[in-house]
């Protein structure tokens, strides 16, 4: 199959994730959008690794998966603590830090 399709799908996923980060205000959904962006990168790398035939891209994918897992741990901990402090997951509600 044409490799361009894989790139097109991953670019689409990345765009969906990025737009989601910009538009959605729920912390969990925001977080899922970031994960979507990371996974679109994985798809690109896997497809490119297939195209080039070397191991580099696949190794990179494994590292991205590990880092994404670590990011989930930190991110969810922050979000849970935020929920206990404020009782809401809306990231826009209390803005204490501004001019």
């Amino acid at each position: 199959m044409e490799i361009g399709y894989y790139y097109a799908v991953s670019a689409l996923l990345f765009t969906i994730g990025f737009v989601g980060v910009l538009l959605r205000r729920n912390a969990i959904v925001l977080f899922m959008c970031i994960e979507l962006m990371l996974n679109s990168v994985n798809l690109t790398l896997a497809a490119a690794a297939r195209m080039w035939g070397g191991p580099d891209g696949q190794v990179f994918v494994f590292f991205v998966i590990v880092v994404a897992a670590a990011e989930v741990v930190v991110g969810l901990a922050l979000i849970v603590n935020l929920f206990f402090r404020r009782g809401t997951l809306d990231v826009d509600v209390p803005q204490l830090l501004r001019y």
């Binding site: 980060v21 962006m37 990168v41 690109t44 790398l45 922050l78």
Partner: peptide
Amino acid sequence: FVTGSVASAILLFGMALIYV
């Protein structure tokens, strides 16, 4: 966390394109 992770993801996509 949010801005930093988005920045990391963008950087990562750039790296993937360089690899492509």
